[in-house]
Design a protein around this nucleic acid. Structure first.
Lengths: 187, 187
DNA sequence: ACCTGAACACCGTTCAAGT
DNA sequence: ACCTGAACACCGTTCAAGT
């Protein structure tokens, strides 16, 4: 699609409305929400949605870029507030909570950390992987984390533990993350 | 549906064919496989499929009961071969591998351990939870597992770790389970 | 250049007609 | 009693016509 800046006024308006509505509907209904409903709620024809976002995933990612970048920024904030090992758990806790509470976020982050998935190379994938890598390296340097774990790997594990927590009604996520960290302790 | 034994000959034949074909198609394509394709491959009208199995989940569970019971039996075998703590990891490893390799099995086991889900009370749920509970209790008694963990909980965690492993291309499942067991060690 | 919405395709589900 | 498959509904996706 053309750069947002260079779009015709009506196109830009539609683009923005679609992003806003998509973020709401995905959050409510999850990543399998009806695209037709998103188009209708945004007041545009279904063809317009496809013109702006050729795939469901493109729309989902575009709708959540802001949220993902906020998560990346949170990693830096937490790194200042807490010692490395605790910072990592705290950040994974926030991500995990988001995956449980915000529809579609778990699916988006999942594809962003899937081996061989082209989405891992998108803004979301790069942002979240870089943040995780930074926290992991600091924890390893501090000696509170094994050296054989990567950023993308803890993200996959966080995704898995969020899934496990969901099966149990959304409880126990923090507890599961603590179990994980004990298991990941060196020695 | 009527008892299988009391069914008319053609109905029983259709029932069996549907189960056999469903097991194949679900295994290949996952739990969202086309029901129409299953009906076609079984050589029956789509209405017949719905007559025998009113919901997708009923068909999935019926198709996999045998597999689930085999997993239950494996728990007893392994309990004889290995000390309690190792038996639990080994069994969770087999279940996890099944969830990764057999389409639809992860979804089925997921609903069987979901809090508040009516499917937790089905044959599959009861079978797998009882087996897990037995292994967990033995490991707790032996002192190799914390006392505050339940059978259904380790199944949820195994589901989560299988998911994490899938994101990484199906590798590292055994490693993740070992991390979990270290985290679940008492003291 | 962009939008609209009808048209098409696909699939799940129901049910009237048939044996 | 059971089966069949047409019919209906729903939704994703494309594209001709319009501005």
């Amino acid at each position: 699609m053309a750069q947002v800046r260079s779009m015709r006024a009506d196109a830009r308006r539609n683009h923005e409305r679609l992003l806003k509505v998509a973020a709401e509907v995905f959050a409510e209904q999850g990543e399998r929400a009806s695209l037709d409903e998103i188009a209708k709620r945004a007041g545009v024809g279904s063809g317009t949605l496809y013109r702006h976002f050729p795939t469901r995933h493109a729309l989902l990612e575009a709708a959540y870029v802001g949220r993902i970048q906020a998560l990346g920024a949170r990693a830096d904030e937490i790194a200042v507030e807490l010692p490395p090992g605790e910072a990592l758990v705290a950040w994974l806790g926030e991500i995990g909570l988001g995956m449980i509470q915000v529809g579609g976020l778990k699916a988006l982050l999942g594809s962003a950390v899937t081996d061989g998935d082209s989405f891992a190379a998108t803004v979301c994938g790069v942002t979240v992987q870089a943040a995780a890598e930074k926290l992991v390296r600091a924890a390893v340097a501090e000696g509170s984390l094994r050296g054989d774990v990567s950023g993308v790997e803890v993200l996959r594990l966080a995704h898995g533990l969020a899934t496990a927590s969901e099966l149990g009604g959304g409880r126990d996520l923090a507890r599961y993350l603590r179990l994980l960290m004990e298991g990941l302790h060196p020695g």
